[in-house]
Simulated scan of single mutants.
Amino acid sequence: MDKLIEVEELVKDLDPQQVLAILADNFRDQITFSTSFGWEDQVITDMIFSNDLAIEVFTLDTGRLFPETYSVWSRMRDRYKKNIKAYYPNQDRLEAMISQKGPNSFYESVDNRKECCGIRKVEPLNRALKGKKIWITGIRAEQSQNREQMHWIEWDEAHQLVKVHPLFFWTLEEVKSYIKVNNVPYNALHDRGFPSIGCAPCTRAVQPGEDFRAGRWWWEDTSKKECGLHSTSPASTSI
């Protein structure tokens, strides 16, 4: 908890770019940013790469991403000449799940879907965060009711680190404006009604008036559509 207080004091009253810069200076080699190449993540990646900040950028390649996601990943490498570290699912666990349940078991039950997310996303994330003290994310409050209850600086009990969401208070229009002004590459699916983009079999476009995350796991009847990467359980504390 002392680390949480330390981070809060360091970044108090700073804008997102200043937050990233001060954390990079104070937590060199101990800070990382996870990108899924969505709008918000593209903004943060641009802030990191354009300012040559000492923040590792990584992504979780589940093996079932959209072609458009791989395309924007390649465009980022071409644009910034920077590496984005990739983490993949454990081969043995993935092979066992698919051999026993088939390639689309996640449609059959919530438990199966959570198992798939656990193998393809949660376990690789645990490896990516091992030994880190600061985890930067692109979460914004208005993305979902569940995320409105989060705080922009949190203690992640599971990973024993501080999570910081620099764009937490930004609106979607502010995010899109930054991308346009700075000519940042973005996922073409956003222009086709995909505000939130995950694995291809588990993501669809949303209709006007639908919730931001309505296109994720749309066949499930639940109000908390999260994959387990960002827990809002009582174990997470914030200031």
Rank of each mutant, 00 (worst) to 15 (best):
V7Y: 02
E8Q: 10
E8W: 03
E9I: 00
E9Q: 15
V11S: 00
K12Y: 13
L14M: 11
D15C: 09
P16R: 11
Q17C: 15
L20V: 02
N26M: 00
F27K: 12
F27G: 05
R28G: 04
F33P: 02
T35W: 12
G38T: 05
W39F: 08
E40V: 08
D41F: 07
Q42V: 03
Q42P: 10
D46E: 15
M47R: 00
I48N: 00
F49W: 08
F49C: 07
A54N: 15
A54C: 06
F58V: 01
T59Y: 10
L60C: 12
D61A: 02
T62A: 09
F66W: 03
F66R: 03
P67H: 03
E68W: 04
E68S: 09
Y70L: 14
W73N: 15
M76Y: 03
M76W: 01
R77S: 15
R79P: 15
K82A: 13
K82I: 00
I84D: 04
I84K: 03
K85L: 14
Q91A: 12
D92N: 14
D92C: 06
D92L: 08
L94M: 14
E95Y: 04
M97G: 08
M97P: 05
I98Q: 08
I98E: 12
S99M: 04
S99A: 08
Q100C: 11
K101M: 07
G102I: 06
G102A: 15
P103I: 13
N104R: 08
Y107D: 00
E108F: 09
E108I: 08
S109T: 06
V110E: 14
D111Q: 09
D111V: 09
N112L: 05
K114E: 13
K114A: 06
C116Y: 01
C117D: 06
I119T: 07
I119Q: 00
R120L: 05
E123W: 07
A128N: 14
A128T: 15
